[in-house]
Structure formats: C-alpha cells, structure tokens
Simulated scan of single mutants.
Amino acid sequence: MGAAKEARLIAVEERADTVYDCIRAFLTFHRLSPDPVHYAFAHHVLCNPDGALARSVTTLTEGGIRLSTRDIEALGGGTGSQMVPHSVGRVTGGAESDAADRLVAQTQIQVEGFSDMMRSMRAETANFGRDLAASTDAVRGAAAGADVVRLATVMLDRVQSAEARLAAATREADQLRAKLEEARGDARRDSLTGLPNRRAFEEAFAEHSATGECGCLAVCDVDRFKRVNDQFGHSVGDRVLRAIALALREACTGHFVARYGGEEFVILFKGADIAEAHATLERARVTVAAKRYRLRETDMPLGAVTFSGGIAVAEPGEALCSVFGRADRFLYRAKDSGRNNLCSDGIFD
C-alpha cells in the first residue's frame, strides 16, 4: 500500500472516530436510544450543521431543551437526505405550549445567571464593606483624617444599603427560579388527571432505555368512552378519566403511569417481567370494573366503567415506537376479545 493511500485511510478512520464520538454525545445528551433511526438522524444533523434539519433542531433545543422521539418523527426522522423538517413545533404540545416551554427554559437560564451574579456581587460588596470599616477605625483618631472618616462613613452606608437591596433581589430571583421549575413540571403534567403527560413519558422511556434494563410497557384504553361522553357529557367523561388515573396510579405504585392522550394511558414497568406487569395491571382492571359509578348531580347510575390493556416486553435499547406498536396490537386484541381484559406477550385473558 502506498504512503499516500495509507495516509488517506488513516484520515478517514480518524474522521469516523470523531463522527462516532459526536453522535454518541448527541444521543446521550438527548437521552435517545442508539437505534438506527436516532443514529441516522444524529448523523444527518451533525454532518450537515448548516442544513435545514440542523437549524430546526437548534430552534427546538434552544434553552437546553432535549429532543424527544416525537420531535424526531415530526422532523422527518427517517434516513439520510430524505429527512426534511416538517415543522419546528413539538408534536406533543402544540405550537403555543412549545413556545412557552422554550421561553420558560430561556428565562430559567437567565434567572439562574442573575441569581449567581447577585450572590457574587453581594460577596464582593460584603468584603469591601469590611475592609472599609477596618480602614475607618484605623484613621478615626487622627484629626487630619476627619474628612476621610466622614467620606468613608458615607460610602459604608451606601455599601450596606446596596447589600440589603442585593439580598432582596437574590431572594426574589430564588423565588422566581422555584416558580419556573414548577412551570417546567406543569409542562410535563396532564392538567386533568395530574399524571405525567405524553412528553414526560417519552422522556422517562428514553432514560430507562439508556440504562439497558429490561421492563414492560402497557397501553390501556377506556372501553366505550365515546358512549360515556355522548350520553352523559364531557364533564362526566373527565371524572371517569380521573377515577381510572387514580386506580392505575395506586395499583402501579413504583412504576411510571402517564396519560398518553384522550382516553389512553400508558405504564412503564421498570425492571418488571411480563408476568409481574400483567398481574399488577390486572389488579387495577379488577378494581375499576368492580366499581359502580353514579352521576353526582342526579344520583343516576352510570354503570360499570372498564378498560382494556395490552402489555409488551421492552427489550434493552428498543425504540419506543417499536415497543408501543406491539403493546398497541395486544390492546386491540383485548378489545376484539370482548373488552374489559388484558392481552400480553404470552399471556391471554
């Protein structure tokens, strides 16, 4: 092999190592599993930093926000040059909530910087004030130093006043930071049920997938929910959703329960095998089915409310779309079997 050819091969290998490292860092930061779709997406963004896709990613992640699987799908997450950004709005929350979320993130960064600056200034002025007070005591007995003492006293009063104002500003900044943290939490919480929402679930699944730990994913759907809404109204439907959310949360303590959208709920059973996940969700199903609901206003019986569910094993590193698709197919099999039951990998009720 010629020296020039060997040098070119070495250069190619070094560049490949750099690309691999960059892609790994990208996937790690955004807590994305290393499946082919995510790898191809990261490769396209990093190797075309001035392209439309990279610009869209920059807009979405401004303020330190991480990408989700749904974001990648919205941006045309496929392979190679066919990736075209459909929009820069997040699928899971709508354009307005996404803009608000980015604004919250940006404001939080600004507030944290302001708070740190206030603490630094306060420390500096405190040190200056102590030095100034010590100097004033040193010249207090000298007649020639009378003017210096008077000036130093005035300056010391001003420094102490500034310290008080900085302390108040620091407290306000800390309070605002806490409120912003609460707002960021609200952006990942379903307002109706109080459960984590779809975005929070996707982030939790990505974090779990990155650990390489086994688990199971369940998809649940309220049976004949449209009939409840049509017959009794949406306010009653909302109460039904809250009741089922409470039952799932209580039965699945220690696992991640979220409202995925509409009458659909998802549960991530971390570290559980299919038998354990099935038994846990079965307890919730039996609890819900055993209750007999009545209308609060008229005491008229609403009857039984039930849900069906599908459960699939989440293999280490498996993409959410893959696991969710299998669990969803099990859910429809449970629906086709008469509703009010569960269907899982290797287990049928």
Rank of each mutant, 00 (worst) to 15 (best):
A243C: 02
V257S: 02
A169V: 04
C22S: 14
S322W: 01
A11T: 07
I109Q: 11
Q110R: 13
R188V: 08
G141S: 11
G51C: 03
G2K: 04
E73F: 07
V228R: 04
K226V: 04
Q110C: 09
A54Y: 12
K179C: 01
P301A: 10
S135M: 09
A133Y: 09
A200L: 04
Q106D: 02
V236Q: 08
T58Q: 14
I244H: 01
L32D: 06
A314R: 13
A304F: 01
R329Q: 15
P301K: 09
H208P: 00
E315C: 10
E213G: 01
M155Q: 14
L32E: 02
E112H: 03
G309L: 03
L281F: 01
D50K: 09
A277Y: 03
T287H: 11
G80M: 00
A133Q: 12
T18P: 00
V286W: 00
E213M: 07
E202D: 12
E263M: 10
S235K: 11
L248R: 11
R333T: 12
R165H: 08
R70G: 11
C220I: 12
I274Q: 02
F307N: 05
R66L: 13
T79A: 08
R102N: 09
G303Y: 07
A173T: 06
V19M: 03
E315Q: 15
A210I: 14
S33F: 00
V236W: 00
A25W: 00
V57L: 03
T153H: 08
A275M: 12
G237H: 10
A247F: 04
V240H: 03
G94V: 06
L180M: 10
D137Q: 12
E181Q: 15
A275G: 05
A143K: 09
A54Q: 12
A251H: 03
G80P: 01
G212D: 10
I244L: 13
E73R: 13
A74E: 06
D230M: 07
R31V: 08
R296C: 08
D21R: 13
P34V: 12
Y260T: 00
A173M: 07
L103N: 14
T298A: 07
